[in-house]
Amino acid sequence: MTRTRTTSRRRSAAGAGVFTGLVTAAAAVGSVAAGSADRTYSALRLPAWAPPAWLFGPVWSVLYAMIAASGWLLWRNAGGIAPARPALGCYAGQLVLNAVWPPLFFGARRYGLALIEILLLVMVLIATLVLFARRHRIAAGLLLPYLGWTIFAACLNAAIWKLNR
């Protein structure tokens, strides 16, 4: 193996670690700030179509892995941050918005404000998807389940806001 290949593989692995770390940090911030989300969720008046509380952990674990892989693929394909700055900027923005929603919804119990925030997340996520699709279709495709789940979560947030005013 040549030195360039070894360096490239190390750089790629380091990039994967960075994206995994960023997504893990966003998940951790949201999780810690949300406190006892299970108890809060169970105490709410929920629509009949609301999923059980136990489902959120496994779903988000899979989605977070896909979000990290998506960012890494785009970064690797672009050859760094600079060539993909707009796409990765939107990616960073959606991670921040993702981390902010749980404290608003579960911590502060500001369901209306959380609804506005998650709708902003949906818009930034759509922009991220469009920018990713221009550079790497698989990276964009990995974000589609996340978008679907986030739209579902926004609908659930709206229903909870209406039922618990």
Rank of each mutant, 00 (worst) to 15 (best):
M1P: 11
T6V: 14
T7E: 04
G15F: 11
G17H: 08
G17D: 03
G21V: 02
L22G: 01
L22H: 01
V23F: 00
T24V: 08
A27I: 12
G30I: 00
A33D: 11
A34M: 10
S36D: 13
A37F: 10
W49C: 05
A50K: 00
P51W: 02
P52L: 13
W54K: 14
F56P: 01
V59S: 03
V59A: 11
V62T: 06
V62D: 03
A65P: 08
A65Y: 12
I67G: 02
A69S: 04
S70A: 15
W72K: 01
L73Y: 01
L74Y: 15
W75T: 05
W75K: 00
R76C: 06
N77R: 09
A78V: 10
G79H: 03
I81D: 13
P83S: 09
P86Y: 02
A87G: 02
G89N: 06
C90R: 15
A92T: 14
G93S: 07
G93D: 00
N98C: 15
V100G: 13
P103S: 02
A108G: 11
G112K: 14
L113E: 15
I116H: 09
I116A: 15
E117S: 15
I118G: 05
I118V: 14
L120K: 02
V124H: 01
V124W: 00
L125A: 11
T128P: 00
T128C: 02
L129F: 04
V130A: 13
F132T: 07
R134V: 05
R135I: 11
H136F: 00
R137D: 08
G141C: 00
L144K: 14
L147Y: 14
F152N: 12
F152W: 08
A153L: 02
A153E: 08
A153V: 09
A154I: 05
C155A: 14
N157S: 05
A158Q: 06
A159M: 04
I160T: 10
L163K: 14
R165H: 09
R165M: 04
